[in-house]
């Protein structure tokens, strides 16, 4: 089937077999490898992208379902040569370790902030609940978002006894 969709502001038109997931389409057909596969079953959130304004697990969406859709991926997140506000907040707060969940995590945060520009810590946790991270223990990710939005909630530091 012929599909046409917008990814990070660019229009792509491709032939696509019906059973190909949006995740594989982005990676294999468009070469956008920033979006990762962690489980392929809609459980881990590593493949999260924004589709028509909503964060979706791209392994659970068929590419043909995205025909006509507007997609944002991690490759479209930086603003020109410089990082986006979300990316800079992640950088500042050490919210990245191995980096494999990062793309999906940033996409979920992006959706959250579009709806709730000043989220509470609980809202941040709720928003990224579907994104597994095995490295960070989530705290520095939550802090990155709260730091970005100027939340008064106290940021933790390593203390010296």
């Amino acid at each position: 089937m012929r599909i046409k969709l917008t990814v990070n502001g660019l229009i792509y038109e491709r032939d696509c077999i019906e059973h190909k997931t949006l995740l594989r389409f982005l990676r294999e057909d468009l070469g956008l490898m920033g979006t990762k596969e962690g489980c392929g079953m809609g459980e881990c959130g590593a493949c999260t992208v924004i589709m028509n304004g909503r964060a979706v697990n791209s392994c659970m969406v068929l590419a043909v379902e995205a025909d006509g859709a507007s997609i944002r991926t991690i490759e479209g997140e930086a603003e020109g040569p410089s990082l986006s506000d979300i990316q800079r907040a992640f950088e500042r707060n050490h919210a990245v370790q191995c980096g494999f969940c990062t793309a999906g995590m940033v996409m979920s945060v992006k959706e959250l902030l579009a709806e709730h520009p000043k989220p509470s810590a609980d809202q941040v946790k709720e928003a990224i609940e579907g994104n597994f991270c095995r490295c960070t223990g989530y705290t520095q990710i939550v802090e990155a978002v709260l730091d970005l939005t100027g939340s008064p909630e106290k940021k933790g530091e390593l203390e010296h006894v």
């Binding site: 990316q87 992640f90 950088e91 980096g99």
Partner: peptide, 11 residues
């Protein structure tokens, strides 16, 4: 900072 941040945050 971590030296690998830029690469990991941009995909």
């Amino acid at each position: 900072g971590r030296p690998d941040m830029l690469e990991k945050l941009t995909g």
